[in-house]
């Protein structure tokens, strides 16, 4: 947190409130997403999560941070990308919070704000996925991996070589990517949807003394 972000209790910095609006917009799409308000901080989610041991901010703390008003730390955390979408937290939550879907909303907000570079594994995997989908309408696994390695680091490909050979030996690799018949229609759908998925521009207010209520140090 930077010095100009220091705020009086109960007041949010313009950046924080802007990130909050963006995030809550994403949460609003989830049926029952508003239940995030009902968190009782019991920790059932963290306890149920099979990967919480590898997270810098476990699920319970994600919601605590959201409440405390530190969206930036939340969006910068590696934890949201560690989630494997197993939904264990979501099914067990006594307050019926859609935690996995909330994490998806965080992922989307972080991507929208370009907080992570395009080389980031999840981002490049999603991008490669998209590329294959747009071209063929179906996923072609070898191509997906090639796109992915080109984006996220070519040396990685070598560690997958033995596996690839083994799969090939069992005739489990489809080399020829087959296009769906109505690929043009699918592309139209995707283009139209992409436009709707575009981030909404919020007004970012510059720092003003009144916004914080006192003159910042320095």
């Amino acid at each position: 947190m930077k010095i100009e972000d220091i705020r009086t209790p109960g007041r949010l910095t313009p950046k924080e409130s802007e990130l909050r609006v963006a995030f809550l917009e994403q949460v609003g799409v989830i049926p029952g997403g508003e239940k995030i308000k009902a968190c009782i901080q019991c920790g059932t989610c963290t306890g149920s999560c099979p990967v919480s041991y590898a997270m810098d901010v476990p699920p319970r703390e994600l919601i605590a941070l959201f409440r405390a008003g530190d969206m930036e730390a939340l969006l910068k955390s590696k934890a949201i990308w560690t989630c494997a979408s197993c939904y264990a937290c979501q099914t067990r939550c006594p307050a019926a919070i859609k935690i996995t879907d909330v994490i998806y909303a965080l992922k989307r907000t972080a991507m929208e704000r370009k907080i992570y570079s395009a080389k980031f594994p999840v981002h490049s995997l999603a991008d490669s996925f998209m590329k294959s989908m747009f071209r063929f309408g179906r996923l072609n696994e070898p191509r997906l991996m090639v796109y992915y390695f080109l984006k996220s680091g070519f040396w990685k490909a070598f560690s997958y070589l033995p596996l690839g050979l083994k799969m090939a030996g069992k005739e489990r690799i489809e080399y020829r990517a087959s296009k769906i018949k109505d690929i043009k229609g699918l592309r139209k759908i995707m283009k139209a949807a992409e436009k709707l998925d575009m981030p909404i521009e919020y007004e970012v207010k510059p720092y003003r003394e009144e916004a914080v209520g006192y003159k910042a140090v320095g």
Binding site: Q26, V29, S85, I103, Y104, K107, R108, M111, V122, H123, L125, A126, F129, M130, M133, A193, E194, L196, D197
Partner: peptide, 8 residues
């Protein structure tokens, strides 16, 4: 993976 990145 796609669901978590681009919803619509």
């Amino acid at each position: 993976i796609y669901m978590s990145v681009k919803e619509i």
